[in-house]
Design a protein around this nucleic acid. Structure first.
Lengths: 204, 204
DNA sequence: TGTACATCAGTGAACGCGCGTTCACTGATGTAC
DNA sequence: TGTACATCAGTGAACGCGCGTTCACTGATGTAC
């Protein structure tokens, strides 16, 4: 604030816009993000954001992309390597995935909601989501090579695993799951069922 | 239309509103549903819908509830009874679930999207979604008794299965899945993996 | 180091728009006698 | 069967609102000489 008063130029308004939009989404959902509000929250005029984003959709796409990158980083961390039990690695990825969604529900919703982003093809967004999938495929492939899960098409297996965690995350976020259910147990059981199912596959 | 011109009263405007809103959602997404448009599409004034629904949210809730009922009916049909192989029954439920979502993507989105419905607790909606879950639990319980899947908490197992199909449906709808992938195969593999995982459960 | 100038980030007033909703009304319907 | 009346579904004009976006502008910054 003091800083802002001192300088006419903001410094890095573009980054601030993305950050602030994400914060607003967390606080009040995607609908609460308006170009007017975001400007005033940053102590900047209404027109200023248009120096950095051609329109509102472009800003929201940037926010969603940032979300995917953040999630991807989180899944990648923990252990990247060979160290721990490898199925354990997959299970932990699933857990982290769902936990991210629970911690940032509105942001997560934006990442996947075509609704909010309107326009069909946002290559940046597609790329960010694609990176997530590729990581998952890589991990699955490694574990296949170790013979710990079956040898089907790793891409298809990745989709199945992704579906399970994405579905669980969505149901939790949208409050479709009885709040009395222990979330940690449910997450564990979901990832475990998927991993068992992948191992078990009766050669179809 | 001819009918409408003949009578001042519409007949069953309430039902028509729900039906027309659903149609508009299918055609142009939830955002395309406006109280103004819906009135004019039914050849009725702007105020007319407010005779039947206090506000827009109430109408959308009714549409979502109708969607859940329709989906539920579809899952229940096919075979209700003891006739067919029982695991087969579960697999078919999963397939029908995903197929419903693919056929009515925007409607499906509305059913689960808290965003669009804004207000937190819509008891009717909660009830309709709950009925879906209870049905699934019942089916799982039956198959447990037959010893075809393991004996864990059927509610938890239902959540796991629901997560998988809901996740797959969502990813497909939101175009997160490579269009070159064979959707039928993917649906089959997902339901199969879940069922295998349920059977396999290594007594944890 | 000092000046002239091009660049461009941010200003702030204003635009037009489509929306949900309200409200005094009017016409149709069903019912009591 | 006929009339009076209460009820209520549908009318249509109007409201206020918040939104995204535009545009001529001004002030800050960096650079060439």
């Amino acid at each position: 604030m003091a800083e802002r008063a001192r300088t006419y130029h903001h410094g890095d308004l573009r980054a601030s816009l993305v950050e602030e939009a994400a914060a607003m989404i967390s606080e009040g959902g995607a609908a609460s993000v308006t170009m007017r509000a975001i400007g005033s929250r940053l102590g900047v005029s209404r027109g200023a954001p248009y120096r950095h984003f051609p329109d509102k959709t472009a800003l929201l796409v940037a926010v969603a992309v940032a979300g995917f990158k953040r999630l991807n980083r989180r899944l990648g961390s923990g252990d990247a390597g060979v160290s721990s039990s490898s199925v354990e690695r997959l299970r932990r990825m699933g857990e982290q995935y769902v936990r991210f969604a629970l911690e940032h529900p509105a942001h997560y919703r934006l990442m996947y909601g075509k609704e909010a982003l309107e326009r069909q093809d946002q290559p940046e967004l597609r790329k960010a989501a694609g990176a997530l999938l590729e990581n998952l495929i890589d991990v699955i492939r490694v574990h296949q090579q170790r013979g710990e899960i079956d040898g089907g098409d790793p891409r298809a297996q990745a989709y199945v695993a992704w579906s399970a965690v994405h579905g669980l995350a969505s149901l939790l976020i949208e409050r479709q799951i009885d709040p009395n259910v222990n979330v940690d147990d449910l997450i564990r059981q979901t990832t475990q069922t998927i991993l068992d199912g992948m191992r078990d596959r009766s050669q179809d």
